[in-house]
Design a protein around this nucleic acid. Structure first.
Lengths: 181, 181, 181, 181
DNA sequence: TATGAATGAGCTTTCATTCAT
DNA sequence: CATGAATGAAAGCTCATTCAT
């Protein structure tokens, strides 16, 4: 029973799946049924598995745009480390699954993405330190850890409390990151 | 049809379940199948449900000892806020499910336990502030949040990395908590 | 661990179980968990099984009073067949499990009770026929069947509709579908 | 790992489930375990739930043919109300679960089917009344109730007795208990 | 003899994954 | 290549029944 409506190029399926995954993971968390992603994409289960053989590869694709946005921000010479923190925090609040994914370092593909984020933060760190906004002994790893902590605490909070908890967490962390005056 | 494998007194089942739950939750996380707990306790499914009608009541029982240990520590006049942080960190490293549970504030029974921990930390906070080790504007809620953040980051790290990550997290947080000099 | 409160004669347990069974069967239907009966009676599971080895024996005991009430009614020379129908209908509405039980003729003990009811109705049937209220060719089995039908229809109706449906059923049964000739 | 036992086309599963449901519901009643239906259909549990997300939808599908047969009968201008009663009685005897289902008015989907049956009976009622076979004050609801009563009594009788009891019930319903005046 | 904790089979339901079409 | 029906292994939970105390 061939479906006459479908003669679009197959690459569209992949894109639809990525969009759907972003929405579903944001809504239902990183453990959402993959079925829900396929359904939302209007795509068969088999196609999902063809493009993304496991949950991790799908999650990576879904949140690639998050990292790309960070890259664009960093590429802007006027942006600061604080801007990066803000962006990552907003991304975490929009989809706690993003940080939940980044923290699953068991998978090497995810670890690569984590390092990518850390390198991006590293590019803005010296500027923040020169401006006297961050202690000189703070490392890029510290920056990434701070982001991960905020994301982690948000992911374990009730939806309604997430923003407040994230702000509270940043207040604590900023004082830790900031130099003594 | 008597079961020759069982000759333990019946009431010990509850205790066996608590022990098994602690182990299983530590191993597999707070979402571990309750079946696994029953199996590990050498107990039928029904017994588990008799003693603990839902997952939360089992988790509360499993980690009650953690809070009790904190209470004993706080009761010791010689103990400090830092000692409390150390204990909670060790507990989190031994079973990240402990903090994962405490962060599930949706359930009122758990919220009560969270407040209990926060109150215990509150008892040691003024001393730490008087000693000049903690900023005067740090609240008990900040202390609890710090613990939750460390637990959250540990729970999302590989087992092998947990201790190092927790220490790194505390380094960041302590500077945030400590007064400017 | 002996319970000092319990040194009442064992026969009280049986009575408590019968009362509890009547209530529970009325509330939850004939398939109610036997556990609920024991709990309501304030009696151990084992005692329930000692006195009533199976569900049927418990149900028989629970509804023995219903049959006894019918016997008392029939013994009254002033009572009529219609009175019997009314009583049985009220009993059915109070606990549809009563008729559900009576209709489980698979079990010989229940069949005996059914015959007992039929015989009681038989005693009032000739009077009703002499009074010109019931056709001469109606048999005791017909009477019992009518009661069973009303009970059956009540048991398959929503609680709120039962009385109305029972009345509607009696109207049909009394007059029939066919016109008088 | 292909399964050599299965080479039927996949879409036949739905049909197999309907057939199996009819058989299982007829055998074991409307409360039969859905597992038994899947097993009898030679189908996985998941397939059953894909096609029929709940018991009611399965039961409706299983007995849809019953209502369809009634519709065909009513569509025949030569058929009478008595024919309809006969058909419904035969259907009830073949599977008492059919009427048990129809009587579960709690579910709106079932209520719709019940009304459908009542409307079908209503179409034949005026003819029967004109022919002097049914009282003029009998309503369609009375007709449906009569069918439900016969089905209910059959469902509560031993398999061997069902036909006799149904006939006895119809005799009562047709003529009534009261004498002609 | 009474208790009620313990058992474990059994039910409903979900979901990752496969595979015929 | 895409589809989506099918699979079946769990998971949560309930309850009749047994049996140590």
């Amino acid at each position: 029973m061939p479906d006459p409506r479908r003669d679009v190029p197959p690459a569209e399926n992949r894109a639809a799946l990525v969009v759907a995954a972003r929405e579903v993971f944001a809504d239902q968390g990183i453990d959402a049924p993959l079925r829900a992603v396929a359904r939302r994409a209007g795509v068969g289960q088999g196609s999902l598995y063809r493009h993304f053989p496991d949950r991790v590869s799908l999650a990576l694709a879904a949140f690639e745009e998050n990292v790309a946005a960070l890259e664009r921000l960093v590429a802007d010479p006027g942006s600061t480390l604080a801007d990066c923190f803000d962006l990552l925090t907003e991304q975490s609040l929009a989809a706690v699954a993003f940080i939940a994914m980044l923290n699953d370092l068991e998978d090497p593909r995810i670890a690569v993405q984590g390092e990518r984020v850390e390198e991006l933060l590293a590019q803005k760190l010296p500027g923040a330190q020169r401006a006297g906004l961050v202690r000189p002994d703070v490392s890029p790893a510290d920056c990434f850890l701070a982001v991960a902590m905020v994301g982690a605490i948000a992911s374990q909070s009730l939806v309604a409390d997430r923003r407040v908890r994230a702000e509270q967490a940043w207040r604590l962390l900023r004082r830790g990151l900031a130099p003594e005056r």
